[in-house]
Design a protein around this nucleic acid. Structure first.
Length: 119
DNA sequence: CTGATGACTATAG
DNA sequence: CCTATAGCCATCA
């Protein structure tokens, strides 16, 4: 799998995260079919082109902590975007137990045609 | 080829 | 909760 393909799969996976939910770098990697690729998710996000429509702010560390330094611009922007999504950011972190994205359930509710059937 | 890097993570103290 | 440490892995100099 080349870099472009890998990045596209990562970006597509992140586009599926609904507003109000968040995911960890490792979770995105796994869903995108890249086991142990958490660092690659971070790398892919760093390569986002201008004008993209990827909700990068919904991706956090496994602990729920924002990956940027507290004094950075990126940190503040991510924090603001999450609040706009309705996701509380307390002391730089999100309650993963409550806001973690659960794709299986999400797909069963929103994409039943591809998950269930027609012969 | 080699070593450094980093939007990562799990574990131990 | 925090620090240290060890894996991890594509990229880059």
């Amino acid at each position: 799998m080349d870099r472009i393909t890998r990045h596209n799969r990562i970006w597509d996976t992140i586009r599926d995260i609904p507003r109000g939910a968040v995911a960890s770098y490792g979770q995105i990697a796994e869903i995108a079919g890249i086991p142990r690729g958490a660092r690659q998710v971070g790398y892919a996000l760093r390569q986002l082109p201008d004008g993209h429509d990827v909700p990068w702010h919904r991706v956090l560390q496994a602990s729920g902590t924002i990956a940027f330094k507290r004094d950075s611009h990126a940190y503040r922007e991510q924090s603001e975007r999450l609040m706009l999504d309705g996701v509380p950011v307390v002391a730089g972190k999100v309650d993963m137990a409550r806001y973690r994205w659960q794709p299986d359930l999400d797909e069963l509710l929103w994409k039943p045609s591809s998950a269930w059937d027609e012969d």
